[in-house]
């Protein structure tokens, strides 16, 4: 019998996880490992359970039944390894972008000087350079999304949990955010990217498809296509979910 060291074990291991809120079943029967250095696209329609799954991975929710095990055992240590970008950016609008990032980075024990350098570098990559010292109340939605993304990345997490990072963004902003995530994937950082956007699946190694609170597919894109004998992700998604959500169809119409 061999033991697994924390560095070798998955960052999060979910085993038959169910999460309910009263009568509402948010996720059901989820068993999955979230590995280091693996990019995962978490796709599904509204209400499929993507956000709940992300919150379980972040340790914000505890499973109602089943287990969620973190590599470090300790939840606080686990959170040091992850960066989370929530669906609502959750910025303090009377603070500047930098102040929002700085106070968050301090919770990770970062010195201001280091977090400033890192923020400036990320801001340049995202096209937010020069706006770091402006109050976020005057920011567009795209600028707020970018600020929240920098905040999630500033402490260089091993795993990034992104909840709809490109939702509601214009084409240019969405492209900048996507390009940064692709760069993170390329440099081997773990990413779980929750989205309606099937383009995410094309840059990620792994796809998890959720439908009606259940994980209906989980694997490499090519393996899944082969397994289901389909040519495209769209066809695969439609086959797995039986019916496409209006949001998904809308996404398809803009050129997926």
């Amino acid at each position: 019998m061999t033991s697994t060291s924390p560095e070798q074990s998955p960052l999060v291991a979910l085993r038959d996880v169910n999460k309910t809120f009263g009568d509402i079943v948010a996720v059901e029967g989820i068993t999955a490992n979230i590995e280091r250095c693996t990019s995962t696209a978490l796709i599904g329609g509204n209400g499929a359970g993507k956000t709940t799954l992300l919150r379980l991975l972040a340790g914000v929710y505890r499973p109602t039944t089943g287990t969620a095990q973190f590599a470090d055992g300790d939840l606080t240590q686990h959170r040091r390894r992850i960066g989370v970008m929530t669906e609502s950016t959750g910025l303090h609008l009377r603070l500047t972008a930098w102040e929002n990032i700085r106070f968050h980075a301090r919770l990770f024990g970062m010195q201001d000087e280091r977090s400033r350098q890192r923020s400036e570098a990320l801001a340049v990559q995202l096209g937010l350079g020069g706006a770091l010292d402006r109050r976020t109340e005057g920011f567009s939605r795209g600028m707020r999304q970018k600020t929240a993304l920098i905040r999630a990345l500033v402490h260089e997490p091993e795993l990034l949990l992104l909840d709809e990072p490109t939702a509601g963004l214009d084409i240019t902003s969405a492209r900048a955010v996507r390009a940064l995530i692709e760069a993170l994937v390329d440099e081997g950082r773990g990413v779980v990217w929750s989205t309606h956007d099937l383009r995410a699946a094309r840059v990620c190694e792994r796809v998890m498809v959720m439908h009606n609170a259940r994980l209906v597919a989980d694997g490499r894109v090519n393996d899944l296509l082969e397994e289901h004998n389909t040519q495209s992700l769209e066809a695969l998604y439609l086959e797995l979910t039986s019916e496409a959500t209006p949001e998904f169809q809308a996404g398809m119409e803009v050129g997926l």
Binding site: R55, T76, R79, V84, T86, S88
Partner: peptide, 14 residues
């Protein structure tokens, strides 16, 4: 209400 609580709860603090 503003949605900033979730980001805070994801920070490595008890």
């Amino acid at each position: 209400e503003r949605g900033s609580m979730e980001a805070l709860l994801c920070a490595p603090a008890r």
